[in-house]
Design a binder for these strands. Structure first.
Lengths: 209, 209
DNA sequence: CGGTTGTCGAACATCAATGTTCGAGTTAGC
DNA sequence: GCTAACTCGAACATTGATGTTCGACAACCG
């Protein structure tokens, strides 16, 4: 038994499973990563300046564990934002933007309001923590979801076109954000917010005269 | 010569002019204080998180000099905000809010837009750096400038009253802020902003038909 | 002119947050 | 059950900002 040769040892040593290409982590690790991203999403939606320590606590893991899975706060934020963007894209992409522009706008606003509530100030965190060009790409992507509908509505007289399109797009974002803040401060309640947003935007876009 | 008694010394020592009640600082000191408040206003209007070092540099004084005049960053911000509030109150107080509510609103919006451009993100700095109750008092004061006019317009049918007053007030702030951001980002230019704000708000407040 | 006041830079203390290291203890998965 | 993978707290290094102290120098004002 003890007569093992160097060759034997070598063979045995090979049994060190080189991490292989298995990107697969252990089950508990994957669960923790999920928890962290979920917690980070919720925390960042409330406060874009939230600390890593708070995120870890909210996720129910140690701070060190978090750093074991995410290189830095910045990469965590980036991943959170990327997931949120992907989710938002799916939701918004499923919306029917054809037919009466005003009705389509109502549908788009309803979905966007739901996402705004869910992700809140995440956009602010993105702006502060992500490389600028990356953030701008995201922002452009979001705006492009609205642009065609707005252009179509302006062309066919559904929406006023005596104001720059860029202003109207900014206004949309602004009103959604304002509603989010108002709900947070308790000025209005979440249930009525969707109606207020739609009523306000529709009025603001109605051709004058 | 060196024969001075203790009494002599004592008498001479009395010539230490006790600072008297003269609250008056030296001329250059007063000028620096002005420069600091001016610079801080401009800096905070752009970036509510600007550092004390940057404010000092913008004011053309050393950081130590700044701390010689202001106990802390927080007190500096408070004084800046107080001056801005006072100035804003004077400007807004001079506006005629009687007559046609829509015309009065136009006047109020024009003045508010000018102040929003000037003070930008100062309100954010105030929120972060001032004691909460103090900030809320300021915020209440601002809102109270709009409330009576809005209530009157809602009563006489000039403005829609199928939405909560609180929402409409939030909307006003939001649109002003959005315009400030849009100008900053170059989406629209400052000259046309006033018209866009008025056109947008008037439309949003028009009673639905 | 002369002393008081103010300015300034450099250096220091402090604080909070980020990121790292260590070592001991758990747990998943074969 | 063995082992690699994972967790976790405590302690440490680092960074950037806030405030403070010191001492030399300059400027206002009587």
């Amino acid at each position: 038994m003890a007569g093992g040769t160097a060759a034997d040892t070598l063979r045995l040593d090979i049994s060190w499973k080189v991490p292989a290409v298995t990107t697969l982590k252990r089950a508990d690790a994957r669960k923790n990563i999920e928890s962290i991203i979920d917690a980070a999403t919720a925390c960042l939606a409330r406060d874009p300046d939230v600390s890593v320590a708070e995120i870890a606590k909210a996720a129910g893991v140690g701070r060190v564990t978090l750093y074991g899975h995410f290189e830095s706060r910045s990469t965590l934020v980036t991943q959170v934002v990327e997931r949120a963007i992907q989710h938002s894209d799916e939701r918004l992409g499923a919306i029917d933007l054809d037919g009466d522009p005003r009705a389509a706008l109502t549908r788009l606003l309803a979905a966007s309001w739901q996402l705004t509530q869910q992700y809140g100030a995440l956009i602010v965190a993105a702006e502060q923590s992500m490389p600028q060009d990356q953030f701008q790409a995201i922002h452009r992507g979001l705006v492009d979801r609205w642009k065609p509908l707005m252009q179509r509505g302006r062309s066919d007289g559904s929406f006023r076109d005596d104001q720059p399109l860029a202003w109207q797009l900014t206004l949309l974002q602004s009103v959604l954000h304002a509603a989010s803040g108002a709900v947070y401060r308790g000025e209005i309640d979440a249930a009525e917010a969707a109606g207020l947003i739609d009523g306000t935007i529709q009025a603001a876009l109605t051709p004058p005269g």
